[in-house]
């Protein structure tokens, strides 16, 4: 993988979305922020490639 994909790529999108919300259930705002930060770091490590990560940073910024 050397290019970030912004086309649908998620396995069972609805289920993933539900899992994401479930993971945040019962957390305070502060705990959720910390959870998100940990998740971003774990995902970034999974991706690894600086080029892809930069494309994703840009994509996230342009909404």
């Amino acid at each position: 993988m050397t290019t970030a994909t912004t086309k649908p790529n998620l396995d069972q999108p609805d289920a993933f979305y539900a899992d994401l919300l479930t993971a945040h259930e019962g957390l305070t705002k502060e705990e959720s922020d910390a959870f998100n930060a940990r998740l971003i770091l774990l995902m970034a490590n999974q991706i690894g490639d600086r080029k892809v990560l930069n494309q994703l940073l840009e994509a996230a910024g342009s909404k």
Binding site: A37, L41, L42, N45
Partner: peptide, 20 residues
């Protein structure tokens, strides 16, 4: 601070976070 603390928390259990 949120990211910094996340790195340190993760570093306790996951090696990947230690270079950060």
């Amino acid at each position: 601070r949120i990211f910094r603390d996340a790195v340190l928390d993760l570093s306790e259990h996951y090696e990947f976070a230690r270079p950060l």
